[in-house]
Design a protein around this nucleic acid. Structure first.
Length: 427
RNA sequence: GGAGAGAUGGCAGAGUGGUUGAAUGCGCUUGUCUCGAAAACAAGUAUAGGGAAACCUAUCGGGGGUUCGAAUCCCCCUCUCUCCGCCA
């Protein structure tokens, strides 16, 4: 959420920043409602002050031996009733305005950071670095991972539709083992890098989704439980950030770094026909997520470190990848700055996103009221939150299958994973 | 699912209609004392909104109501705990 004070004070600059994003956003309705609300608030609080005064006067009069039924008290009560009636008109109007303003604010995306490259869409993203070109497999007929997987019998899409529907997968045998190996490997690496592992609830409530930014704007992307205010989590970012919602954290507790494996559930509304085959776009997928809660003045360097932690997984797996910085038009809703890591998929002859590492600065902290306190300093300030995939497990599996395939149709298991698969070297 | 109890400041814990934003203790900050520390003593110590400021307003789990006036009374909701039932 953006700071209403900043919008009020510097609306032109805020508007200009918003205009760099895709989609159009107009601050004027917020400014109008805000002006109305503040006028009402001034009026209301003056009446309230008089009402409080009357209450005290009545109390004093009676305590001082005055007649509770006397004319003096009666006059005050009459005035009190008049004030109350006026308040009864103003209060609901002001409350309604506040709700409207808040709803509009919740639908505004974060401002792109100053360093984010300007651009309209993913084509304007800037490649920052590239790694592992020499590992790219060469050969005549490189198969896509879904063909490799079906041939090896390690996963099955068709039967999954019986259990659920399309865009679900069932992993079998070595496929299940490989998925589990990847999860354990990724977690072990991140734990070694200093992240504390978390196993959070996989169902999250709407307050949590509002704090991280999925609600109210992206409700159609989530799976909601019909009888409860609970949703299947779309990413572990939601429970991990919300661990600290409505809390004031001592600054010496920061930075907080968590990693978690969770399944993630997404409706993928609006993506019909895209990536319909394979492990790339499913309604349920595993992900190891990295989340940091940091002090505002360290968020940039912590962000760089977090991206490195994700990159190290790809490098350990010897998977070719590149790192791109998202342009302002491609930036996610809550992000001020974002790096995507894209892994090489030889069958498609292209790089595909496998990790997205965002610095949300105080955007989520404001929505979730997550603050820190610097000892000796008055007041509190909002923390910064960072998140990144470390990595998307299904897509990693796809990349491993495609990049480690051999001419005879088998797939080598990356060296670092072999200990996690009982020493097995080939599928 | 059934029955009961509870939710107050960073923490513990008073407070059942009237100058209570809230006693007291702990914690924290500052000062006195001390070579220094501890102890003792004194003062201070919530958050948010509005206002140039003085200051005003809101907040005792959330929402609504009664009243001139609500932490306190009434209604609804949420959450926590205990017992019973069911259950991995």
């Amino acid at each position: 959420m953006l700071d209403l004070k900043q919008i009020r004070k510097d609306s032109a600059a805020v508007q200009a920043k918003l205009n760099l994003r895709s989609g159009s956003y107009d601050l004027q309705p917020i400014l109008d409602l805000d002006g109305q609300q503040r006028n009402l608030e001034t009026e209301r609080s003056q009446l309230q002050a008089r009402s409080n005064e009357i209450g005290k006067l009545v109390g004093q009069t009676i305590k001082g031996g005055g007649d509770p039924k006397g004319p003096e008290v009666a006059a005050l009560k009459t005035e009190g009733n008049e004030v109350k009636q006026k308040l009864g008109e103003l209060e609901p109007r002001e409350r309604e305005l506040k709700v409207q303003i808040n709803d509009l604010l919740l639908r505004l995306p974060n401002l792109p950071g100053d360093s984010a490259p300007e651009g309209e869409n993913e084509e304007d993203n800037v490649e920052v670095s590239r790694w592992g070109d020499e590992n790219k497999p060469t050969g005549e007929k490189l198969l896509p991972h879904w063909e490799l997987g079906e041939k090896l019998g390690i996963f099955n899409f068709e039967r999954s539709t019986k259990i659920a529907q399309s865009r679900f997968v069932t992993l079998l045998g070595a496929g299940a083992a490989l998925e589990r190996a990847l999860i354990s490997f990724m977690l072990d690496r991140q734990i070694a890098a200093g992240y504390t592992e978390v196993i959070p609830p996989y169902l999250v409530n709407s307050d949590s989704l509002t704090a991280t930014g999925q609600l109210p704007k992206f409700a159609e992307d989530g799976f909601k439980c019909a009888d409860d205010d609970l949703w299947l989590t779309p990413t572990a970012e939601v429970p991990l950030v919300n661990l600290y919602r409505d809390e004031i954290i001592d600054v010496d507790q920061l930075p907080i770094a968590h990693c978690a494996h969770t399944p993630c559930f997404r409706r993928e509304a609006g993506s019909y026909g895209r990536d319909t085959r394979g492990l790339i776009r499913l309604h349920q997928f595993n992900k190891v997520e990295l989340v940091k809660v940091v002090s505002p003045d360290t968020s940039e360097e912590e962000h760089e470190k977090l991206v490195r932690n994700a990159e190290e997984i790809l490098e350990a797996l010897k998977l070719p990848y590149r790192k791109v910085e998202l342009c302002t038009g491609d930036l996610g809703f809550g992000a001020a700055k974002c790096y995507d890591l894209e892994v090489w998929l030889p069958s498609a002859d292209t790089y595909r996103e496998i990790s997205s590492c965002s610095n949300c600065n105080d955007f989520q902290a404001r929505r979730g009221n997550i603050r820190c306190k610097v000892p000796g300093k008055k007041g509190t300030q909002f923390v910064h939150t960072l998140n990144g995939s470390g990595l998307a497990v299904g897509r990693t599996m796809a990349a491993v299958l495609e990049n480690y395939q051999q001419a005879n149709g088998s797939v080598k298991i990356p060296e670092v994973l072999q200990p996690y698969m009982g020493g097995k070297e080939v599928i």
